[in-house]
Design a protein around this nucleic acid. Structure first.
Length: 885
RNA sequence: GGGCCUGUAGCUCAGCUGGUCAGAGCGCCGCGCUUACACCGCGGAGGUCGCCGGUUCGAAACCGGCCGGGCCCACCA
């Protein structure tokens, strides 16, 4: 496509304007200056008249406000910005919004501490509410002192509090140079986001993709909420095996091993593998549990593993997910003893018949599982049913990723969205979506496949929290005041967002809330991923702006971290597949971690020591971006100040080399960009080399390999500065001549053309330095200039051999080495020298001989001799002594 | 237990589909204030490419095994 498009930057040089090259160049202040200028010009504004095929749309990750941005954010957001800038220069209209994630626990906690309130959805909304505290004094209000407020009031406080966070985040992103359209920001807690989340849910419900079920599930006793599979984290947890005797009818013991003796009263069966010889005779019989005296069947099930523990397990409701499987498949009774608060239930269950058992349970009631365990173990010791002492072990237990106590399994009514976890057809369809999606790097795809392949249930989307997007559902109450969960009352889409705890469903009045024959609102809120999974719909205007949506969806790019492939990426694919029958985007770009020098994931504390803003201020944004862009997608990178210094050096070099290259004629002189003037073999060879760089860098960026593109441009640029510029500077000066000779014009034109291309190649990574230079001599912004095209460059280079630059550079290096070894200045003149030139380089050196002579300051005889070596070597050099001062 | 990534100069990393690959930058040593740049330039020293086998005329690169580092998933009665 670009090959057919003329390159206006090459063919229409600037001839107007009072642009000039400053005497002194500097990076100081470029960030503020250019951010202000870009803002004033609305340089990155999205033109919504463009059609889908002209647009490049990015589903930006909304950073969590109420947290802080760290170097990892700077790292990955730079990667995305490089893509955005490249695509913009390629001629695509880039849709690049920014979101703020203000849902979830961090914001909830912060609002509580800051304003001294807590969310209580049962309370009515209070207009003009003034919070009891205002955290500007830095005080943290303790939970006991927090005043309950309605959900709507809570959300409003959240929106106020996060404004300041958002302002600071935006300031950092602007300083970093993200080319975001700042008129398009979104909040995950906004009315629009809530409406989208509710509307998508209602549609899932209507299609049967969302459903409610009462079932045992993982439960966090601290947060008192159900937890989804995606939020689990397996952690080591110390425990101990207890060998416990159950008793057969004749009193003979049957030993099991358990790490959770406190669940003994919840035991519903003993289970062994059907083929296990040791227990054949027990299958079909019953045993009695120790202490509690409950009669239990001994059953066979293939999930029992003969080599674990005693080979026979006690099945409780519920100790782990295997228990749930047995309970379900063997249709065992439910005998829960652990409540939602993680404590043993207060009421002694009726299945415990014995007096002693009931007495013991009375002692356990209300205890934490930890204390209950001690009591049960003491009882077992006393009764002689504990065989030996408990043996300590390290086991893995499931934790909520934000929690610090192992999860319990409790039965509760929850909302689910189908995600293929219990439906092979849907699973296959979602795996097919994963295959259809581009992953950069490609090996990240297996994480998606592993996750989808390993799902063991549908997506649990309801949470028993107060702050978040409520389910837009009410239930009728029957004459007895019982909730009829099977006949939910739903709002129409145009009324969204609604809050069922304060809004009243159609056909009811407010005073019917909670009374028999009336209604009640669903008390739960949605998982934050239930909202985040809809970022393409939220930002693209799915609900409120279908015209925009048609221009940006399905989107082009989802940039994100590798840790949330199973959550954000997968859930977004699920929602889009269900709602739109398509992928939400065609490409995912996965950034790696930032590691500290100890090769550990950069910790919060360390990340906070070096604040991102501090980094940008100290090293400059281009320098920090250079560091980020030096790391490939999907690969962890070291936090390395040294790399930033190299980036800063590059940015400064761009300024200085540009100033120099533009110093040989007026910067606005058309001669600088006329390809027809480039006639010298060395000049044409340099451009031929640049053709190669443009082609390869473009291909690299198209395949999301910004590292390679940068490396190619950078390598070329340093050779351009160190060798080519040195070789041609005398000729470009045209010293002494009154008129510009063809040779001089060739050098100047080649310098101008090369500079013009190099600035554009570097623009995505070094937006400030390149824009600074661009402003000295070109019209408009380099960031709206077309990406370099190889075709016109190739025409200018003709059939030149790019190796001429390397050959001439090698010859110059040989002359430099003579001076270096003689420990004299490079300015020292050479009166005579013989260069031994390898055959392969001979033609190149010949072609640029006069430039080599000038750059090496050879004032006398320069003779060339053929050589079969690999390097150009200088012999018999005679140096002119420096004149005494 | 299953899987992914990774191990190249002191450091951070390139080496793309096996044949100028043993490279770059930083750091280090030496030299140079050369009118683009001293926030610089020039020159130089530094590695049996984790280890052991195999394929091949030829392997840092391909295959197998082992060791080390990072990570994901699953599981433990």
């Amino acid at each position: 496509m670009s090959d057919l498009r003329p390159d206006p930057a090459l063919s229409t040089p600037s001839t107007t304007g009072a642009r000039e090259v400053p005497d002194r160049v500097s990076l100081d202040g470029v960030e503020e200056r250019w951010d202000a200028a870009w803002s004033a010009q609305d340089l990155y504004g999205f033109d919504r008249s463009k059609t889908r095929d002209e647009v490049y749309s990015i589903d930006t990750p909304p950073p969590t406000v109420s947290g802080s941005l760290h170097v990892g954010h700077v790292f990955s957001y730079t990667h995305t910005d490089v893509v955005a800038r490249f695509q913009r220069m390629r001629g695509r209209e880039v849709f690049y919004p920014m979101g703020w994630d203000d849902n979830g626990l961090p914001t909830e906690r912060r609002v509580q501490n800051y304003y001294g309130v807590r969310c209580d959805p049962t309370l009515p909304y209070v207009p003009d509410f003034v919070p009891p505290h205002n955290g500007t004094d830095g005080k943290v209000v303790k939970p006991g002192d927090q005043v309950p407020v309605s959900r709507r009031n809570f959300v409003e406080l959240c929106e106020v509090l996060t404004v300041e966070d958002e302002r600071q985040f935006e300031a950092l992103w602007r300083r970093l140079g993200l080319s975001v359209d700042w008129s398009m920001t979104y909040q995950t807690v906004s009315a629009e986001s809530r409406a989208v989340a509710q509307q998508a849910f209602l549609r899932n419900l209507a299609r049967g993709e969302a459903y409610q079920a009462e079932a045992p599930g993982l439960w966090d006793v601290t947060f008192q909420t159900a937890v989804a599979q995606a939020e689990l984290e397996a952690r080591d947890y110390p425990g101990a095996f207890h060998k416990v005797a159950f008793h057969r009818e004749d009193g003979a013991p049957v030993y099991i091993e358990t790490t959770r003796p406190e669940l003994l009263p919840a035991c519903v069966a003993l289970i062994a593998h059907p083929d296990d010889e040791r227990y054949q005779h027990l299958f079909g019989t019953t045993v009695t549990s120790p202490l509690f005296g409950v009669e239990l069947p001994v059953l066979a099930h293939p999930a029992a593993e003969p080599d674990k523990g005693a080979g026979i397990a006690m099945c409780c409701t519920f100790g782990d997910l295997t228990d749930v499987q047995w309970w379900r498949e063997l249709q065992l009774p439910t005998r829960s003893v652990v409540g939602r608060d993680g404590r043993i239930v207060r009421d002694t269950p009726d299945w415990i018949g014995s007096e002693a058992g009931r007495a013991l349970f009375g002692e356990l009631a209300g205890k934490t599982t930890f204390s209950a365990r001690e009591a049960v173990v003491a009882g077992l010791r006393e009764s002689g049913d504990l065989d030996g002492e408990p043996t300590p072990t390290q086991r893995k237990a499931n934790f909520y990723e934000k929690g610090d106590k192992p999860l319990e399994i409790v039965t509760s009514r929850q909302w689910y969205i189908r995600n293929g976890g219990r439906d092979e057809q849907l699973r296959e369809a979602l795996l097919a979506r994963g295959a259809e999606l581009g992953f950069a790097p490609d090996f990240m795809r297996v994480r998606y496949e592993n996750w989808v392949g390993g799902l063991n249930g549908d997506w649990l989307v309801s949470r028993q929290r107060f702050f978040g997007v409520p389910f837009p559902v009410w239930y009728p109450l029957d004459e007895q005041g019982e909730v009829d969960h099977d006949s939910p009352i739903l709002p129409s889409e145009d009324l969204l967002p609604i809050d069922p705890s304060s809004d009243v469903p159609a056909g009811y009045t407010a005073d019917q809330r909670g009374v028999p024959g009336g209604f009640v609102g669903d008390p739960d809120i949605m998982d934050t991923w239930a909202t985040s999974s809809l970022t393409p719909q939220i930002v693209g205007g799915w609900r409120s702006d279908p015209d925009l949506f048609a221009r940006v969806f399905p989107m082009d790019l989802r940039p994100q971290g590798q840790d949330i492939i199973r959550t954000w990426l997968f859930s977004t694919v699920v929602r889009s597949h269900l709602e739109h029958g398509s992928l939400p985007w065609t490409q995912a770009a996965i950034s790696g971690w930032i590691l500290d020098p100890d090769r550990k994931k950069m910790s919060k504390s360390k990340g906070n020591v070096v604040t991102p803003m501090g980094l940008l201020e100290e090293h400059g944004s281009d320098a920090v971006r250079y560091w980020a862009a030096s790391a490939r997608l999907g690969t962890d990178a070291a936090f390395e100040i040294g790399q930033m210094k190299i980036g800063r050096r590059l940015a400064i070099k761009v300024l200085n080399a540009s100033k120099f290259a533009l110093s040989f004629g007026s910067p606005t002189e058309p001669v600088l960009l006329d390809p027809a003037l480039v006639t010298n073999p060395l000049d044409r060879a340099m451009l031929a080399g640049l053709v190669d760089v443009v082609e390869k860098a473009t291909a690299a960026l198209e395949s999301y390999d910004h590292t390679r593109a940068l490396e190619l441009s950078e390598t070329f640029f340093w050779t351009f500065c160190d060798d080519y510029l040195e070789l041609v500077k005398d000729r470009a000066y045209g010293a002494g001549a009154t008129e510009v000779s063809a040779e001089t014009a060739s050098a100047r034109a080649a310098l101008g053309i090369a500079l013009d291309v190099l600035l554009r190649l570097f623009a995505p990574v070094l937006p400030f330095a390149t824009e600074e230079v661009w402003s000295w001599w070109r019209e408009g912004s380099v960031h709206r200039a077309p990406w370099p095209d190889a075709a016109p460059l190739r025409a200018a280079a003709g059939d030149a051999d790019p190796s001429v630059v390397a050959a001439a550079g090698a010859a110059l290096a040989a002359l430099r080495k003579v001076k270096s070894e003689a420990k004299v200045s490079m300015r020292t003149e050479i009166s005579a020298v013989r260069l031994a030139v390898p055959t392969a380089l001979r033609a190149g050196v010949d072609a640029a001989l006069e430039d080599v002579r000038a750059a090496g300051r050879v004032v006398g005889t320069l003779t060339l001799a053929d050589d079969d070596g690999e390097q150009v070597v200088a012999h018999d050099a005679e140096l002119v002594p420096a004149a005494a001062v």
